[in-house]
Amino acid sequence: MSQRHRLRSVLTLIELNGLIPIRTQPLYLVNLLASPLAFLFFITIASGGVLLAYGIGGGMILTMLSVGTGLQSDLTHYRHDLKFQDIVVASPVEAPTYVAGMALSELVYSTPGMLLFLGLWFVTGAATALHAFILAGALLLVWAFASALAFTLATWFEDVRETFMFSPLISLGLTVIPPVYYPLSALPQWAQYVALVSPTTYAASLVQSAMGLIPITWSTAAADWGILTAFTAGLFILASFKARWREA
């Protein structure tokens, strides 16, 4: 398959799994917005508006992580219930093309949420081009990490119902316990060490620094980028070994 054909396949998957479902059911767009908005609402009310900016930053991260949750369900459903993956395997489309197309298609669902949170940030904060660039980079890494996690988990699930069971646990472990909606310093010292296990801690550090909420040194920023990238790459490597493109 040539690069042009691969690109066409990726774009087709975006259309097939992203644009068309939204055309037929526009509520998909709102669905992904519900949890981040609920968190933003509670945090803002409970803090008397002090943590509004944290709520916005956390909302962006949660929106990107939700893309991974959706991907995980879609992959499992398409493989087991519809046999769509079998149809694709027996075609010129290669596994990385399928992975890229499906992961990008899920980004479409995050568009309203990201636009809303970016809008809120521009209105309430002091956004600069550099900050926006750092923010975009960090969020793209969160998306890549969430996609890699989705592919890794989807290889284990035999039924879409299993994804319904795991998804809330994953969300809890990646967005509520780690300091996504508050600064790391708000946690007790021992809990800060525990939070370092979660890759979203590093993403939150980058997002919160880009939004001017926490000070960050160049070395810390470099470590955040490096660790987040390493987590993502590790998951992609794991997924590439475990993913059952051709079943054993």
Binding site: D81, K83, D86
Partner: peptide
Amino acid sequence: IACVPQESRPL
């Protein structure tokens, strides 16, 4: 090649 698997359904 192209394949219609058993029990497959269109999206």
